[in-house]
Amino acid sequence: MVLPGVYRPQADTQLLAHALAAEIVRPAAEILEIGTGTGALALSAAGRGARVTAVDVSWRAVTTARLNALRRRLPLRVLHGDFTACTHGRRYDIVLANPPYVPAPSRWLPSRGPARAWDAGPDGRLVIDRICASAPGLLRPGGILLMVHSAMCDPDSTLKRLAQAGLAGQTTVRARVPWGPVLRGRRAWLQNQGLADVGEDQEELVIIRAEAL
């Protein structure tokens, strides 16, 4: 179920779901999903017996995730707001993140509207960098961060920031998918920024896996 204006599960959601499926999820493991959208990933984890907290800045997304949890009769704690404020003082075994990562002309994150699900500043890293910095405080020892984003956002920078934060990270999956309408609409700007080549029409997605030491 997807309410109007809520990000629909797409290729990045599917990649993250496959990455989660490859992880051992012990009974009653504590899992956090940042940017839950419809709640699809959070509910997948809840179906494996995990205790899941899902966070989103969109009230429509929060409502959608709660309705989907009711429909599937799965326990899911869904919170509205910024992930750092909603999780203060709590640590998790697994953190899932499908953050906004599409490069955008604006230097600021959108404050409203569906673009909050994808726009993330000129380099696409406004939220990614916050997650990298926050990960050590969110994960228990041995905890795992699974994050998906575009190769346009410089995965090496993500790995470097995670290493500086004390996490051992690696890129575990790479997949190419056709450009969606947002990237197609920004073709000229992306080319001017050096983020896309002329005639390019596919985006590389990556899964970053990092472990708290």
Rank of each mutant, 00 (worst) to 15 (best):
V55Q: 04
A117R: 14
H18S: 06
V55S: 07
R125K: 10
H149Y: 04
L43C: 00
H88G: 08
R72N: 13
T84G: 09
E23G: 04
F83E: 06
E203S: 07
Q191H: 13
G142Y: 12
R116V: 04
A28E: 14
Q14W: 15
L138R: 00
V57S: 07
T36I: 06
R130K: 12
E211Y: 05
R73S: 13
Y7I: 07
P75N: 09
Q193F: 14
L20Q: 07
L96D: 02
G137P: 10
C86T: 08
G49V: 06
R112C: 11
V95L: 04
Y101W: 11
P9E: 04
D93I: 05
D82E: 11
K160I: 02
T158F: 07
D129G: 03
P103Q: 12
P114H: 09
Y92F: 15
R130M: 02
Q164F: 05
Q10H: 15
L74V: 00
T36C: 09
E211W: 11
G81D: 05
A210Y: 09
G143S: 01
L16W: 06
R184F: 06
P27D: 00
T64V: 01
T84W: 12
N192G: 15
Y92Q: 06
W118A: 04
R48G: 03
D82P: 05
S58N: 08
E200N: 11
A50T: 10
I24N: 09
T84F: 04
G37Y: 06
V2T: 07
R187G: 07
A54I: 06
R77S: 11
S111K: 15
Q164Y: 10
D93P: 11
L32D: 01
V127R: 12
I131G: 00
R51E: 10
P75R: 14
V127S: 04
A11N: 11
N192W: 15
P99A: 13
A163Q: 03
W118L: 09
L41K: 00
G199T: 08
